[in-house]
């Protein structure tokens, strides 16, 4: 099987991060060529070195033979649709597999699907399937492929028992992802001597919360100010409240956090119940008072906290069995 992946890996943003792990997962099992939107990305040695390690090819579409055989896979790559890249790929013989990754349709997505431009559609979760509901307007075959994380990329770190808690979050700097009351919610948990760490912060977020006086407890880091893994390893609790108009289609950063040993406290709903066993590997909270109660229990019982931290790692490892994920992907890409 030949897969032409349209996009480029990155450590920022769910879909591009997903690409890193997916390429690693499938390398050696299928022939992969990564085709970036911008030729300049082929000069990013940090990524080309990794692709070389995995035996993954990379090239511009123009540099490839006129006639291609295989599958074109694009994940959350809007220009793939809007700039007509899909059309070129199709004309050159590729079957098109598209994964939105979002809870909404990208520009042109619906029209192109209706026009027969896409051969297979991928969902990441049931909740995303419910939102996008391709079946309601087309008969293009769909698959749920989920999300794979290479567990080696997020080593577990035992948290010290004798230090004050650090709570925080990592997500794309999208104001929609942050609840209206974000900083006051964290502070209202009223944990003793707590520190707050947030990555990736932006000017837009600073503007949204300009009413708040962020004091010495807060550390607001720019995107990629630290490697994601080091940032997550610095957190005891991953408290991930979300904006009221935002639904998390999967929850990649939550599982990354769990792999490092950070305990997730997340709102009920979304896809989180599939990721977290409530009370064993984190908490699904339906109310502020639940967030507060669980956070305080964890703050007051370092031994229990360490136990749950290890359980988070085990749970996240279970969710990321490479054989299982590879089989799902190979079937999905067999168009």
């Amino acid at each position: 099987m030949k897969v032409f992946f349209f996009g480029w890996p990155s450590y920022y943003g769910g879909a591009d991060t997903k690409a890193v792990h997916l390429l690693k997962l499938l390398s050696g099992h299928v022939d992969i060529t990564v085709i970036p939107n911008s030729p300049g990305q082929l000069q990013e040695s940090c990524w080309t070195q990794r692709l070389d390690e995995w035996g993954v090819n990379y090239a511009t579409l123009e540099s490839l033979p006129d006639r291609l055989d295989g599958v074109a896979l694009a994940m959350c790559n809007s220009p793939f649709l809007s700039s007509g890249i899909y059309s070129t790929a199709r004309r050159r013989g590729l079957r098109i597999v598209w994964s939105s990754e979002m809870m909404w349709h990208h520009p042109f997505e619906v029209d192109l699907i209706k026009a027969g431009a896409i051969d297979r559609l991928l969902y990441v979760s049931e909740i995303q399937k419910k939102a996008l509901n391709y079946e309601s307007f087309c008969d293009v075959p769909t698959r749920i492929t989920g999300n794979f994380l290479s567990v080696d990329e997020f080593p577990f770190v035992e948290r010290p028992r004798d230090l004050p808690l650090t709570i925080g979050r990592l997500s794309r700097a999208d104001p929609l992802k942050y609840p209206e009351d974000f900083p006051v919610f964290y502070e209202a948990l009223a944990l003793p001597d707590v520190r707050f760490r947030v990555m990736a912060w932006s000017e837009e977020l600073a503007q949204k919360y300009r009413w708040h006086r962020f004091d010495h407890r807060w550390e607001l880091l720019a995107p990629e100010a630290e490697p994601a893994v080091e940032f997550l390893q610095s957190l005891d609790l991953f408290v991930y409240t979300l904006g009221h108009r935002f639904t998390e289609s999967w929850g990649r950063s939550t599982v990354e956090a769990m792999l490092t040993g950070a305990i997730p406290l997340v709102p009920a709903g979304h896809h989180f119940a599939s990721l977290i066993v409530h009370g064993e590997s984190g908490y699904l909270c339906s109310d502020f008072l639940e967030f507060q109660s669980y956070a305080r229990q964890l703050a007051e019982d370092p031994l229990a906290r360490q136990g749950m931290s290890r359980a988070c790692r085990r749970r996240a490892e279970l969710l990321n069995d490479p054989e299982t994920h590879r089989a799902v992907w190979l079937e999905a890409l067999n168009v």
Partner: peptide, 9 residues
């Protein structure tokens, strides 16, 4: 409810 953080307070 949206902006208070802890509405119960």
């Amino acid at each position: 409810h949206m902006l208070l953080g802890n509405p119960y307070a």
